[in-house]
Design a protein around this nucleic acid. Structure first.
Length: 758
DNA sequence: GATTTACGCCTTTTT
DNA sequence: GGCGTAAATC
């Protein structure tokens, strides 16, 4: 097969690029992955490089798997050696398992996931007597992680990130690191930092790896952070065959330390770099591309590029303003149902800004019996019972892993209560040794007697027995031994109603099976544990699932025939917590761009003014996302002249059923109406809707082109100035509830009120 | 030490 | 509104 014939000129140039650095600026859908995989195949096919001299780095395991498969597809699966296609993190783990002894760790280190990290931060806060009310574990942790992902050590924290409590954070950060160190454990950020440290401190190792990986290819380069950049620099010290592919418009991980600087200053960092732009989009219809481009064009921090396509125009994006999250879901799922009826092979996705939105969609999909796959919310490896089992494994293979030990020390309950645990950790802290050592000392102290010491002794014996068996037996056998020795299943049955317990037991069985399969593949325990630690739910995405639910972040790099972007309202998308600065807003906008450009054929956008976040009302109804305003309205179906959107869910409203539990009146916060908000009273059915359009158009002309909607400020000849709270139908007229600053709340008939919009 | 109750936090995105 | 942790009680 001629590799180059299936590529356009720019793609060919990229694939054929010889030695030296190259930056491929590749717009969405322009064949990024294609270029990387073809280049790998090209290098091998043309004997420019031996497979084992090639390293391709991605961000997710899913992307790595896909790349591997595509390379196999191009070259055929049987080769004497494989190119190494890996994520940043798993590449580092591989390196560290071999090299970390050089900086004083043992090769059997544990990897802490975010849950383990949280537990550790909490412990540190307790040790230091810092109140968790002030230093919320989650936030504190994210500040530590932010520092790490900028390669900022505790000592320079306060200098780098000034804040009133910077000294406190610095101290917590430093203690947190010390605890990790003594537990012979690394968190996600450490994987990169320690790999960099080793390559930096041991030039001989650096040269060795740099020699081996003579060709390095990086996907999604715009999302690399400082440690990742440093790693690439070290790995290219003996050559500069660094080939990176990226798109600054798709940079969405700034919050995690990704720095767009890496892409913007690539030419300076790697002199003589060749730059190739891929601007032809092969994925989406012209309409979808135009909508996406129109949005992202509003960013100032970007290189202007002209993404174009030969694809057909396609249909306009369809918009929906729903009266509740539930109805939004009903609309989306209704559309999905009929799309699938027409074409059962479609792949569809519901994308949203935040995970908690998945719930309504799941409910409705379940009710309608449409199979779906959710990505992200509860990962298999994140389940309590799986984490417990893995914690046992971690302790058995790395007894110094304090967090794992403390997790299982009394799970299932074995008589080692809080007081005893406190005693153990206090002693460990005082002596600066891992908890397991203290456990050994306490249990071995014949002086001590009593119930809790008997429990400690029994637990230590059990641990030792497992550890004695661990090397002879496989992981699966060790797991079975743990299950049996702890009667874990009995605990589950005691704790929960039977269906939950049985499903947890089934999960554990699945884990044991996975361990067996790993053994058959010849994996070591650590390879198994590493995979469990680095696995994300994204990796379990079933390619056969017709409907996938996930956050926009998770969707990066994926494509679907049809995309539903849900929750498109102010406060959620852009998120309220990311709307304070232009920088944050630009990241939200890029996120929106990523979401839209996942769609090949059709795009649907939905929002609701009445989303409630955990029980509490928001401050009044939400407005549609500002990103709507940035889209060309002629490319949006359902765009209403009054500036709102047509309700699209005819069935739901014409059968009248769901209208009974009618929506609460516009929940404006009393006393402080949301002035200036672009909201309106929801029509409840098609008649109201038609009437609504008529009157808003009529009222629009009567009131100087502005519609009478809740939130709008008006002036009345007698009552003075006020704000419209509610607008509802009353016979052939509309009744307005208005709160006037002078006379309070009044109800008026729109036709006679002669209001002037302010 | 275990079980029950109350309180508070959370929901921005993730390897 | 739901979950996990901390205090209160058995």
């Amino acid at each position: 097969m001629d590799l180059l014939s299936r590529l356009n000129l720019e793609q060919q140039a990229a694939v054929e690029h010889g030695k030296g650095p190259a930056l491929i600026l590749a717009g969405a859908g322009s064949g990024k992955t294609r270029v990387i995989t073809y280049r790998i195949a090209y290098l091998i096919r043309n004997a420019a490089s031996r497979p084992e001299n090639i390293l391709a780095v991605t961000f997710t395991n899913k992307a790595a798997d896909e790349m591997r498969q595509r390379v196999h597809g191009l070259l055929g699966p049987v080769r004497p050696a494989e190119p190494l296609i890996s994520t940043f993190h798993s590449f580092c783990v591989r390196l560290l398992r071999r090299e970390i002894h050089r900086i004083g760790y043992k090769p059997d280190f544990s990897i802490y996931d975010s849950d383990d990290q949280r537990r550790l931060v909490k412990r540190v806060l307790q040790e230091l007597g810092k109140p968790q009310s002030v230093f919320q574990p989650g936030r504190t942790l994210s500040r530590i992680s932010y520092a790490k992902s900028h390669s900022v050590p505790p000592a320079s924290y306060a200098g780098q990130f000034p804040a009133v409590d910077a000294e406190d954070i610095s101290l917590i950060y430093s203690r947190y690191n010390a605890r990790l160190r003594s537990a012979n454990s690394l968190d996600f950020d450490d994987l990169l930092l320690k790999a960099v440290e080793i390559l930096h401190s041991f030039p001989e190792r650096r040269d060795r790896y740099s020699d081996q990986f003579r060709y390095i290819l990086v996907d999604e380069y715009q999302d690399t952070n400082v440690p990742q950049y440093n790693l690439l620099r070290l790995l290219t010290s003996r050559h500069d065959n660094l080939f990176v592919v990226g798109d600054e418009d798709q940079s969405i991980y700034k919050f995690r330390g990704a720095t767009i600087r890496n892409i913007l200053s690539f030419e300076r960092d790697f002199p003589g770099a060749r730059i190739i732009k891929l601007e032809q989009n092969y994925r989406s219809t012209k309409t979808i591309l135009d909508v996406a481009s129109a949005v992202v064009r509003n960013n100032t921090e970007r290189k202007e590029k002209a993404l174009w396509t030969r694809n057909r125009p396609g249909e306009a994006a369809t918009c929906c303003r729903a009266l509740s999250p539930r109805k939004e879901a009903a609309w989306v799922v209704g559309r999905i149902g009929s799309l699938l009826e027409d074409n059962p092979d479609l792949r569809l996705a519901i994308l949203y800004r935040a995970n908690f939105l998945s719930r309504n969609f799941e409910d409705v999909l379940l009710e309608r019996g449409i199979p779906y796959a959710v990505v992200g919310s509860v990962a298999f490896f994140g389940r309590m019972e799986i984490k417990d089992m893995l914690a046992y494994l971690r302790v058995i293979f790395n007894p110094e892993d304090d967090v794992a030990l403390l997790r299982i020390i009394n799970t299932p309950a074995r008589g080692i209560g809080a007081t005893t645990v406190e005693l153990l950790t206090r002693a460990a802290l005082d002596k600066g040794i891992p908890v397991s050592r203290v456990l050994g000392e306490f249990a071995g102290d014949a002086q001590l007697a009593g119930r809790s010491h008997r429990a400690l002794r029994r637990f230590r014996q059990q641990l030792e027995a497992w550890m004695a068996e661990r090397d002879g037996a496989g992981v699966a056998d060790v797991l079975r031994g743990v299950l049996e020795g702890t009667a874990y299943a009995d605990m589950l049955r005691r704790q929960e109603s039977s269906p939950e317990a049985e499903s947890r037991i089934a999960n554990i069985e699945e884990l044991v099976r996975a361990a067996e399969e790993a053994e058959e593949r010849g994996e070591t325990v650590f390879e198994f544990l590493d995979r469990a630690s680095l696995a994300s739910e994204l990796d379990h995405l079933d390619p056969k699932a017709r409907v996938s639910l996930m956050t926009v972040h998770s969707a990066k790099g994926l494509e679907f025939d049809v995309v539903f972007l849900a929750g498109m309202e102010e406060g959620l998308f852009p998120h309220a917590l990311s709307s304070s600065s232009t920088e944050e807003l630009e990241e939200e906008r890029r996120l929106c761009y990523v979401g839209i450009t996942r769609a090949k054929e059709r795009l649907f956008l939905s929002w609701t003014p009445f989303r409630r976040t955990f029980g509490r009302d928001l401050d009044g109804p939400a407005s549609p996302s500002r990103f709507f305003d940035e889209m060309p309205f002629q490319l949006l179906q359902g765009w209403d002249a009054a500036g709102g959107f047509l309700e699209e869910d005819e069935e739901e409203y014409e059968d009248g059923q769901s209208d009974q539990e009618a929506e609460a009146p516009v929940p404006l916060k009393s006393g402080r109406p949301a002035a200036g908000r672009d909201t309106q009273d929801p029509p409840r059915n098609m008649q109201e809707l038609r009437a609504y359009i008529q009157t808003t158009q009529a009222a629009g002309s009567a009131a100087g082109g502005r519609a009478l909607r809740p939130g709008v400020r008006v002036r009345h000849a007698q009552f003075g100035d006020g704000i419209i709270l509610k607008r509802e139908r009353s016979g052939n007229d509309f009744k307005l509830t208005i709160t006037f600053s002078r006379v309070g709340k009044k109800t008026l008939i729109e036709r006679y009120a002669r209001l002037k919009v302010l």
